[in-house]
Amino acid sequence: MSPDLIYGLAGLAVFGIGFFRALTLAAPLRRVLALKLCAVGASFLLIVAAYRQPPVTADAVPHALVITGIVVMVSAMAVALALIHRIAVLERERSDG
């Protein structure tokens, strides 16, 4: 047992939960949350790939990749949230007449 094994499996479990919920939840905001969890779970795989037993320093390349992934994800989420907001506004206008 080592941390990389423990967190690698936990990350995959988080991915599985996010994946399942992303495909089954109807409310868009919840789907955004599910997708973000999914992405975090996938990132665990890269972080674990970088891990080395303590005296050795970790591989920096996957770390840089995950930082990039986090920024990409927040961009995609911001666009999704803007769309969700706009849709809600238009639907409210339509139901108000």
Binding site: A22, L23, A80
Partner: peptide, 20 residues
């Protein structure tokens, strides 16, 4: 966007497996 995000995450997993 949702379809595209799921697609991207699956691709990211593939990248992770390759690097691993």
């Amino acid at each position: 966007l949702f379809a595209s995000m799921v697609g991207a995450i699956l691709f990211l997993l593939a990248v992770g497996l390759v690097y691993l």
